[in-house]
Structure formats: structure tokens, C-alpha cells
Design a protein around this nucleic acid. Structure first.
Lengths: 206, 206
DNA sequence: GAAAAAAGTTGAACTGGTTCAGTTTTGTAG
DNA sequence: CTACAAAACTGAACCAGTTCAACTTTTTTC
């Protein structure tokens, strides 16, 4: 009952992912055509579209992997966060940012973001936003922990605050992805300053 | 020296803009093809591309108009803002949001946003980000005014704070544009709660 | 093991935005 | 007014992502 068909399916899917990953790294997302991916993966173009709805859909599986890994690692930060709230938030932020270019280039992030915005009812967009929501929830979760530990004012609206901080992280990451000259260090420094500005007034007012 | 050529050029440009605006309103951006726009404007497809670099470029001229109007109106709010900081920020925010759908539909905003992200070095993207920067500067400017008026703590980092608040406005507007069921009222309510969470701790600590 | 059904593969054709070589129109000089 | 140059217009061809009707392979049934 192993199923030859299942085996072939899994194999083809893997071949397509391997081929595209290789080609994207080699020549960039835009430069690589579906023909090339299909050829390199030894399937036909039609078969490619049996496995992925669109070219951008290829990215989604990578984005998904990326974010899931980062969410898991983020959870362990929430379990025992740095005492200083700014430092705690920046630890999470650095995790997100440093991990971001492991599987995906800036160009690929741009494409994924643009695709997610383009039509909101596509499965791509829905999944992408789910992942974002997961990250946002994690930031909110961290604020709750800090609040419970008495590190942040008790009357802070953790939900609203978390959304603002996450939206800022996300917007800054978008800016970073758009501008090829924007370095990771510059990004972290700017976000540090912003996070400070927002979080400092909430400290010790418990 | 009026120049027949100049006159014709201006006329053709106007015809294309009128035609596309009409067609987009009628059938939505995606549905309308360049052929149709060209036909309706009584020019050839090639001529269309003499006047606009891409289909998305059509949107840019509309977005540009939109944002320039809003920036101007925003300036008059800065001249004499409501005393309460949250109310002041929400007045500006409501201006932005209420104005947003005068010339552009959600679908058109999505397309413009996606295009601006897709390739960051295109004139489209550069112009779009300039406009965003203008809005961000206006939010920062409002915070400065409020700080000068003694309404916000004197040691607040207006620049960083303004960026965070603007990034949040922008992110929420993006979410709103993506989700066709997200209403303007819901948007304003959520942003109100977020703005409160961030700004309240800065009040009276002067 | 043969036949029918189900699932999957294939690549040529389609789609719609974009380009460009050839043509027409406008401005200028003699 | 004619001739020439510059600018602008034109639409058929191009391109790359996507679709789909015909074909092949695997599974199921008897």
C-alpha cells in the first residue's frame, strides 16, 4: 500500500522544489522561467502546474517553511525572555530578521509580498496572512509575558500594542526588502530606536 | 507658439486618463485590457505606451493626485490640531482614510502597492515611496506640534514615534485594502485602539 | 490477466502586457 | 512651397505565465 503513484508524486514535487530553489539562487526569481524549472526538474510545464498553482506559489512553500521555523524558535524566547522589555522585543526581532534571508532573497520576499497583496482571496494571500498573524500573535504574547513579570505597565493594552509593534517590524522589513542597499544592521538600528520610543514610556509604570 | 504637437499630446494624455478611469470604475482594473483603453481613448496600443510606461503606471498618476491632495489638507490640520493628542492623530488618520477611496478602489490600491513593492528601483516604486515618506513626515510633524504645545512628553523621540504610528496606519490600510469585507469603520476603530495604546503613555508626562 | 476507471502527464495553444521597425504627422529651413 | 529632420503613431509580433484536450500510466474490478 506504499503506492507507486504517491511515491512518484512526492518525488516530482521534491524535484520541482529542488530545481527551482537551485535556479532561483543561481539567477534570481524573475530570470528563471517555468520552462527552465520544468526542464531542470524533468517534468512538463503542465505537470508543474499540477503541483503549484502559480509561479509565486512556489515561494509560498518556502515562506511557509521560513516562518514556521522562526515561530518555533520564537516560542523558546517567550519561555524565558530578557528582563528588559526593549531587549526582549529586540531579541525576537533579531531572530525574525536574521532568519529571513536563510531561504529567501530580498527579491523573493518582494515577490511574495506583492503576490500576497495583489489578490486577497487567493489561497496564497490567505496563507501568507495567516503566517503574519502568527508572528503578530507571538509579539503580543511576548508583551503579555513581560506584563505578567511586572516589567511593563499593568494597564497596557497588550493586543493593540503588539499589533503596532509587529506592524512596524513588518513595514520596516518591507522597506528593507525593497531597497537593495538597506543593510540588516541599518534595519536593526532603526527598529531599535523605534521600539525604544514606543516601549520606554511603558516601563516601570506598573 | 502654442504648438499643435503640444496640444495634441496633452489631449491624448487626457483622453487616456479619462478612458481608463471610466473603464476601471466600470469593470475593475484587472478586467480592463490595454487594448480597450487604447480603443476607448482613440489611440493605438503603442501610443498608450508612449504616455505610460506600464499599466500600473496609470495608477501612479491617480495615487499621486490622491496623496498630494491629502497632504495639503493635512497641513491645515497641523496648523491648528485638536488639543488631545489621540484626537489630533485620529483627525489626520480619518482624513487619510476617508480620502483614500475618492479616486481609487481597493483593487487599485492593491495593485499600486504590489507594483511599488515588486521592483524597488522602478520610477513607479520610487515615486510611491516618496509619497509615503511625505505622509510619514506629516505624522512626525504633527507629533512635533503636539510636543511644542506641551501636549506630549518633552523627551519623546518624535521621529521614531511618528514612523511607528505611520507604519501602523499604513499596514492597517493595507490589510483593509486586501480584505474586501473590512469596512472603513472597522479600520478606524482598530486604529483608534492602537493609537491610544501607543500615545496615552506619552500624555502629561511633560 | 484483460478491461475499465481513475489519476496524472504532456506540450501546443492561449492570454494579455509590452516592444519595436516601419509609417505618418508636425515643425523648420531654404 | 518644397525638402528635410524630428517627433509621434501604429499594430503585428513578442514574451512568459497559464490552460486544456488528448494521451499515458497506475489502480481497481471481475
Amino acid at each position: 500500500m506504499a503506492g507507486l503513484r504517491e511515491k512518484q508524486k512526492a518525488d516530482r514535487r521534491r524535484r520541482i522544489l529542488t530545481a527551482s530553489s537551485l535556479l532561483f539562487k543561481q539567477s534570481g526569481y524573475q530570470e528563471v522561467h517555468i520552462n527552465q524549472i520544468a526542464e531542470c526538474a524533468e517534468v512538463s510545464v503542465g505537470t508543474f502546474y499540477n503541483y503549484f498553482k502559480t509561479k509565486a506559489d512556489l515561494l509560498l512553500s518556502t515562506v511557509s517553511m521560513e516562518v514556521e521555523e522562526v515561530l518555533q524558535q520564537g516560542d523558546s524566547i517567550l519561555k524565558d525572555p530578557p528582563e528588559d522589555p526593549v531587549e526582549a522585543l529586540m531579541t525576537l526581532t533579531r531572530l525574525y530578521y536574521d532568519h529571513s534571508l536563510v531561504y529567501l532573497s530580498k527579491e523573493m520576499w518582494r515577490t511574495a509580498m506583492a503576490a500576497a497583496i495583489q489578490e486577497g482571496q487567493s489561497p496564497f494571500s490567505i496563507r501568507y496572512r495567516e503566517l503574519d498573524k502568527g508572528l503578530c500573535a507571538q509579539v503580543c504574547g511576548l508583551l503579555e509575558v513581560l506584563q505578567e513579570n511586572g516589567r511593563l505597565s499593568a494597564d497596557m493594552d497588550t493586543r493593540a500594542m503588539g499589533e503596532v509593534i509587529f506592524n512596524n517590524l513588518n513595514a520596516m522589513f518591507t522597506e528593507y526588502s525593497i531597497d537593495e542597499t538597506f543593510t540588516l544592521d541599518e534595519l536593526k538600528n532603526r527598529v531599535l530606536r523605534q521600539t525604544r520610543a514606543v516601549v520606554k514610556p511603558l516601563i516601570g509604570a506598573a
